[in-house]
Write a protein that binds this DNA or RNA. Structure first.
Lengths: 137, 137
DNA sequence: ATATAATGGAGAATAGTTATTAATTGATAT
DNA sequence: ATATCAATTAATAACTATTCTCCATTATAT
């Protein structure tokens, strides 16, 4: 499974715009961290991202990665996938979709195919902020 | 929302039987830990359970609570609910069902009503062990 | 009663994540 | 270009949830 260059470009454009709209500095580190998440379909962990960013920014700190991931979440640019007994994963695909966790391989996939779950958008008058649907194999 | 005494009794019976079937000692601590989870509908955290068990077993250790929760999971007697940015919750209702997280109140509810999600039981030939559906308000 | 295997409790250790700090950098207005 | 100022980075420390280690104790089957 892969992700189109077009989609990546769109995510990056959207990212730059969102950060600027907030009047926040767009640092190369920030951009690289987001780029890694946005161009991956492996739902990387903070540690994975950290190791990749280090290719460009040798001195980057893991804490910087975490701080930015939190910020991106607050801006609605990425989502966090909390897993049972494993570090959180991160995803730049924002639409609600299902995740499949292959515990043995330690991998997380998007559920392809024509899943048609009718999901609620509100519960007892309150808006649902985020929906996690996770299948563990 | 509440849980019937009958259901609790059934869960406890099932618990005792399952533990004995494994040839494991059925200690009063074990039973109390399970009883707390089985008779609650608040999806308690390990810490909550710990504080309740202490009413009966003043000297119990939090590690003992965790150790037993892990064991109960392995025996398929309870399930763990991993949440974003919060300690895990535990639930003795085993059938797949949806959870609603009220982040502000720090509470987790079962989704009542007649939710009719058609969930898969297999993905690419592999059996799904556990399904988490979590709505964050 | 006794053997044995698992348990409980105390505390230390670990893993993942977040906070603190000081120095630096990026964006904006001049 | 330059000054300004808030936000950022990187390093480190701190924190929280959870797991591990150890040894005395206890439940279970004989």
């Amino acid at each position: 499974m892969t992700i189109s260059q077009q989609e990546i470009t769109q995510r990056l454009d959207n990212f730059r715009q969102a950060v600027r709209n907030q009047g926040l500095p767009l640092t190369p580190q920030k951009l690289e961290i987001f780029r890694i998440v946005a161009s991956s379909c492996s739902h990387p962990q903070a540690q994975d991202i950290y190791e990749q960013v280090k290719n460009k920014f040798t001195n980057i700190s893991l804490a910087t990665v975490y701080k930015n991931l939190i910020q991106f979440q607050k801006l609605g640019l990425i989502i966090e996938i909390p897993l049972a007994g494993a570090p959180n994963r991160y995803d730049a695909k924002l639409e609600t979709h299902c995740h499949v966790v292959d515990t043995k391989q330690g991998k997380v996939y998007d559920l392809g195919g024509n899943q048609k779950l009718k999901l609620p958008t509100k519960i007892m008058g309150q808006k649902i902020k985020k929906t996690d649907i996770i299948y563990y194999l």
